[in-house]
């Protein structure tokens, strides 16, 4: 029973997701020549570096039971501000990047304060943030601004070689470092555990004396920061700033988190799962690209189907899981009575 209990609502989706990724990759390797290569795998990180970074922030937000719909437009705004400052005002890359990161944080703080102190729904506030950031893009320019600054091109083209053939981009490395820091934050710091506690039961978290207000604002700040960092990575990737960049990215980020096993009600989930979620979305895109005959809209449909399956699975575990555990404790009653262990009554 112990082992069975360990594979529960929180770990099973992660296992299923990982298996699914392996299966998809294996399917690709069997179906298409040259799919099975280190570079195709590493390309998943290169092409989705910004998604990974954004999804990390999103996962933190979802873990508190909130949601952040503004991430895509903050990414777009970041690219726009970067492009405008670098191209039109000839700022240095070293001045621009800290500035845009700060801007992302400021956006997050603003939304966090509105959510926390005015007790507004995260959904609606970040929706406002989404409008605001996209709108501000157009205030800067309606058209795309391409970035010709050589330092951006240099970062963009730099390859970190692994052996003879395979390589990663700087963006992918930044994404992986961010992920590592994120995992450390989530598992080994007070901030991270408070995030989980809020998602589990916010009222309890307050009564346990945890800094709930501060943590919630920080979580949206973190998401704002991640979005801005994602935006910086997009500028490296696309070498342009545009108000239509990262359209619908918030949905990809949410989908990655959910597919990775994060409960949208909060409190349960792993950042590693989110990474696998992003990779799954990426591998689906690669599959469709390799196929060549399938149109790009199949990606959206596939993501929708996956999202649906994983949500249903979560539902099953929310309900079935607790019923299952109640059953176990009921059946196990005779043995446990002596051990003074669990009161052995099924939880009501």
């Amino acid at each position: 029973m112990n082992l069975l209990a360990r594979i529960n609502a929180r770990t099973l989706p992660l296992i299923v997701t990982s298996l699914l990724f392996v299966a998809l990759f294996a399917f690709g390797s069997v179906s298409y020549d040259s799919f099975f290569s280190a570079q195709v795998f590493l390309n998943l990180f290169i092409d989705n570096a910004f998604v990974i970074v954004v999804a990390i922030g999103m996962t933190f937000v979802i873990l508190t039971g909130g949601i952040d719909l503004s991430v895509g437009s903050i990414v777009a705004l970041t690219t726009m501000v970067t492009a405008a400052l670098v191209e039109q005002h000839h700022w240095s890359i070293w001045a621009v990047i800290p500035l845009v990161l700060l801007m992302g944080c400021a956006f997050g703080v603003m939304m966090g304060v509105l959510i926390q102190y005015f007790e507004l729904q995260p959904f609606i506030v970040t929706l406002g943030g989404m409008f605001l950031a996209r709108g501000l893009c157009y205030v800067i320019s309606i058209d795309s601004i391409s970035i010709t600054d050589p330092s951006y091109a240099a970062v963009s083209e730099y390859r970190i070689m692994f052996g003879e053939e395979a390589f990663l981009s700087i963006s992918a490395v930044i994404a992986l470092v961010t992920l590592a820091i994120g995992i450390f934050l989530a598992q080994y710091t007070r901030f991270g555990r408070t995030v989980y506690a809020i998602g589990g039961n916010e009222r309890s978290a307050i009564l346990m004396g945890l800094p709930v207000a501060r943590t919630k604002i920080l979580v949206y700040t973190l998401s704002g920061f991640c979005s801005a960092l994602g935006g910086v990575l997009v500028t490296f990737y696309m070498l342009s700033g545009y108000g239509l960049h990262a359209l619908g990215l918030e949905m990809d980020a949410i989908a990655s988190a959910v597919i990775g096993g994060t409960l949208l009600t909060g409190g349960v989930g792993y950042l590693a799962g989110t990474l696998v979620g992003v990779l799954i979305l990426g591998v689906i895109q690669s599959l469709i690209a390799f196929d060549g005959s399938l149109s790009s809209w199949w990606t959206r449909i596939a993501i929708g189907v996956l999202l649906c399956l994983f949500c249903l699975m979560q539902r099953f575990f929310e309900h079935g899981g607790s019923k299952l555990s109640a059953l176990f404790s009921y059946w196990n009653k005779p043995e446990e009575e002596g051990s003074a262990g669990s009161g052995a009554q099924p939880a009501r």
Partner: peptide
């Protein structure tokens, strides 16, 4: 410019 519409809407939402 009509694109500013979004900024205004955002402020209205808030």
């Amino acid at each position: 410019p009509p694109e500013i519409n979004m900024v205004v809407k955002a402020l209205v939402v808030f």
